[in-house]
Amino acid sequence: MTIAAPPTRRDIAYRGFHLPADTTAGTVDERGRWTTPPVRVGFAVAEVVPSWTAETPDGCWIEVELRGWHGEAPATGWYLLARWAADDRTVRRTSIPGQRDGDAAVDTDTLVVTGAMVTGWQARVTLCRPADSPTGPVLRSIGAVATGPALPGPTGTPEPTSPAARGRVLDVPRYSQRLHAGQYPQWGGGGDSWCSPTCTSMVLAYWGLGPTAEHCSWVQPPGPRPVVVHAARHCYDHEYAGAGNWPFNTAYAGLHGVDAFVTRLRSLAEAEAFVAAGIPLIVSAAFRADEVPGLAYDTRGHLMVLVGFTADGDPVLNDPYAPDDDAVRRTVPRQAFEAVWQRGSGGVAYVLRPASVPLPPPPAQANW
């Protein structure tokens, strides 16, 4: 939606902004602010991760805030999770560090509840544009995923699986991030750290979407795959100094014609429902070398595309941390991979799909 409240003018000193050197601070019209109704989740909340899709013309940006909710009243103050723009020529997208009090703290893309009793969340989005801009931002979607203090361990009761996912591998293109090693190091050190935008690029390509050759023409020399470099630049968080901010990746994907959001899944059984529906998932895991057979490297956090399952239920991955495209496809043991995915990120997954492709039916306690 466009938020067409009467404009409120404010002078911004751009304190805390990351701006190109030639940017001149000036007067900004704050075109509108929209606050979601409180979303009550029915359990004690430990973390909330927002995600959104929006359009921001040149010089415009949005600011995304969260606060905790309990009962009939707010449980925390507001915390600024993102100052986001689609491009980086005027206002560079950034998370906002240093926000911590007795109730909660901001950890890059996540609101972490530390002391308050929180059983729900509320989001607020501010659309900002320069005073002389003929157009302003448009908010397309806003949401969040809330999780409790710890995900439940195995119950001993097998979870229902999706038979249609067993033996199904989606035809997601294979992109190696390591082909871009050393390329454009100003965005997180180059390709060796670009797992997230490489995965986002793979899934956009699966849907036949992504930036055009004209949009990527600035990548010179073009290298092995300009769309990956373009994604790394346009997912880059200038405060975090990396391209792995979860909602920045889904917001980038949303610019290319997909519905995109971050969620947390409880198990690979839930992930199977997406594969059965023809939707690959981008999943985040942390592990030690060989903790998962077939993944012989250490990572404190790595993104891969879950493209399918074997007939026996083992996950099939497009792992961008490979020496070349041919080596990207890997099959790993189900139990070992599920353990490091749940432990490392709490089951984080990016869901990217055209609106014409329906999501699978959600579980009783919906997380999508």
Results as ranks from 00 to 15, higher is better:
residue 67 R to V: 07
residue 161 T to C: 03
residue 6 P to S: 12
residue 93 R to V: 10
residue 30 E to N: 09
residue 39 V to N: 03
residue 37 P to D: 09
residue 83 R to Y: 09
residue 287 F to P: 01
residue 67 R to S: 06
residue 34 W to C: 09
residue 296 A to F: 00
residue 134 P to N: 10
residue 207 W to P: 03
residue 37 P to C: 00
residue 245 N to Q: 10
residue 244 G to A: 15
residue 308 G to I: 04
residue 363 P to A: 11
residue 347 G to Q: 02
residue 133 S to K: 08
residue 363 P to M: 06
residue 231 A to L: 03
residue 241 A to I: 12
residue 105 A to M: 13
residue 121 W to R: 03
residue 84 W to F: 14
residue 184 Y to L: 10
residue 12 I to E: 13
residue 307 V to D: 02
residue 17 F to W: 15
residue 38 P to H: 07
residue 297 Y to F: 15
residue 96 I to H: 11
residue 332 V to I: 04
residue 35 T to K: 06
residue 308 G to N: 08
residue 60 C to D: 03
residue 16 G to M: 04
residue 354 P to C: 12
residue 216 C to W: 00
residue 128 C to A: 13
residue 67 R to F: 08
residue 65 E to S: 14
residue 180 H to S: 12
residue 14 Y to N: 13
residue 251 A to N: 04
residue 282 I to S: 01
residue 340 V to T: 06
residue 309 F to H: 05
residue 155 T to C: 03
residue 182 G to M: 08
residue 258 V to C: 04
residue 320 P to A: 15
residue 280 P to A: 13
residue 113 V to A: 09
residue 123 A to T: 11
residue 203 V to N: 01
residue 70 H to P: 00
residue 260 A to S: 13
residue 86 A to C: 13
residue 164 A to G: 13
residue 320 P to I: 11
residue 20 P to A: 12
residue 330 R to F: 03
residue 189 G to S: 10
residue 328 V to K: 00
residue 360 P to A: 11
residue 240 Y to L: 12
residue 288 R to A: 14
residue 173 P to Q: 08
residue 94 T to M: 15
residue 189 G to D: 08
residue 21 A to V: 04
residue 292 V to C: 10
residue 114 T to L: 14
residue 197 P to S: 11
residue 228 V to I: 15
residue 187 W to C: 01
residue 115 G to W: 06
residue 141 S to D: 14
residue 169 V to H: 05
residue 348 V to W: 02
residue 335 Q to D: 15
residue 239 E to L: 10
residue 37 P to V: 03
residue 72 E to Q: 11
residue 329 R to D: 00
residue 282 I to H: 00
residue 284 S to I: 07
residue 5 A to P: 01
residue 256 H to A: 12
residue 39 V to K: 04
residue 327 A to C: 10
residue 210 G to T: 03
residue 337 F to M: 12
residue 113 V to W: 00
residue 17 F to H: 14
residue 101 D to A: 13
residue 185 P to T: 15
residue 56 T to P: 00
residue 95 S to P: 02
residue 10 R to T: 12
residue 166 R to K: 07
residue 183 Q to C: 05
residue 179 L to V: 05
residue 61 W to M: 01
residue 37 P to W: 00
residue 186 Q to V: 07
residue 242 G to I: 00
residue 311 A to I: 07
residue 49 V to E: 02
residue 352 L to M: 14
residue 259 D to W: 00
residue 104 A to L: 11
residue 336 A to M: 02
residue 189 G to Q: 07
residue 193 S to V: 05
residue 89 R to K: 07
residue 298 D to V: 09
residue 250 T to G: 04
residue 275 V to E: 01
residue 308 G to L: 05
residue 338 E to C: 09
residue 168 R to A: 11
residue 222 P to N: 11
residue 256 H to D: 11
